[in-house]
Design a protein around this nucleic acid. Sequence first.
DNA 1: CTTCTATACATGTACAGACAAATGAACGGA
DNA 2: TCCGTTCATTTGTCTGTACATGTATAGAAG
Lengths: 239, 239
Amino acid sequence: MNTDPQSPIPRYSQIKRMISARIQSGDWRPGDRIASEAELVRDIGVSRMTINRALRELTLEGQLIRVQGVGTFVAENKAQSALFEVKNIADEIRARGGRHQAKVILLRREAAGDPTARLLEINSGDEVYHSLLLHLENDIPVQIEDRLVVPRMAKDYLQQDFTRITPFVYLTEVAPISEAEHVIEAVLPQAEDRRLLKIAAKEPCIRLHRRTWSDGKLVSCVDLTYPGSRYRLSGRFRA
Amino acid sequence: MNTDPQSPIPRYSQIKRMISARIQSGDWRPGDRIASEAELVRDIGVSRMTINRALRELTLEGQLIRVQGVGTFVAENKAQSALFEVKNIADEIRARGGRHQAKVILLRREAAGDPTARLLEINSGDEVYHSLLLHLENDIPVQIEDRLVVPRMAKDYLQQDFTRITPFVYLTEVAPISEAEHVIEAVLPQAEDRRLLKIAAKEPCIRLHRRTWSDGKLVSCVDLTYPGSRYRLSGRFRA
DNA sequence: CTTCTATACATGTACAGACAAATGAACGGA
DNA sequence: TCCGTTCATTTGTCTGTACATGTATAGAAG
């Protein structure tokens, strides 16, 4: 275990990363019990308070579950479907027994215009990846996914087959989400969106604008447009 | 400072609440510098690690900003409507410098119909309290609040003056929120809602349904309708 | 076989002390 | 004046210890 006291990175942070890496890699699986604080103290050679802080923060971040008197366990992967968590529409549809299908309308590289550059926190003119997908549930359109991706965070984005793996799933694999920003608004869709979603001119839509970060770096910016008559966003949480 | 060692509530948590309360009440304003760790240690009489944990967690929660070598400051208010926390619209408006006003359109007891009873998890025919308010920001309508309340959770609901205290504030006082459920949809408002919000027929609105629980018991069910052109819901969180 | 109890173990919190790192202000010299 | 040094202050981290609290289990008691 590399927890060099001279390193500028605090030890508790190094321990967090080491545990997080084991979980991300699949080395430690959801439900597994990990070593106790006392064992980690012995193995790593730091004080228990340092171990405790690392484990406590990982618990706050949802990666671990701790039970007093029992031990520390790898948390189950969040079974999404909550508004307040970043979710994958394919899983949601399957969860309610539907058949998910995605059509790739557009998938290409572009040069960032000025507003796009500001949004993605890059320089104007830099290359960005752009995808436009239509998601269907039992052949009925339910979501337009219009996404911009920062190339350096997902180099092989354009080579993916998004009829098989959703952009969300691919991106979380190559750049796990550490932070997200959401904005929701109600809009009347433009002609192109109306055509894709097969809805009437006056039907209001929900537009969810989401930006996601991985390890402090912006990864992707996406607009999700839902037909108001066929879709709701919902979520439940504890205060 | 009441940090009785016998209390079941941890001291660091009590300290968090005390600081948080000072901020919420406006006693300490955004940008203010608060007492240093050393001063708090002296005033409260706990160890510095305990103070440090309280301040560190409040910083993670976004209430404080800490600068090494300088001090600890009250964070600026987020100038947006927080989607992922249950908040009070009056505070939101005041936080961005606006003037809040509420008009009570309706306030009465009713007998629960069948759908209402299911929603509130009570028996059909049971009494419910019903309020309908219009919230204005600088005299411009920004939200219709249509609320049902379970009487046994807030007995004096009908006696409140909701031009002075919002239903949200009153309810959180008598029944603190332990859990909340949200559903968001886009709708075209009915004539009555259009009249209240002073909007055109084709303007889409965001409707937020929220049910709140206190200590496992359902307290209230509310529909919040926002004019799409004037309002967005937004939020940011860490994964 | 069931139930209670003692025990070991794991996490949760709290403390006192120590050093590191960043900042800002006071001070002194060119 | 301008620049670098020194110093006090403040937060950031780490250690070692102590006790509290929750859980599971083995063994005793019934």
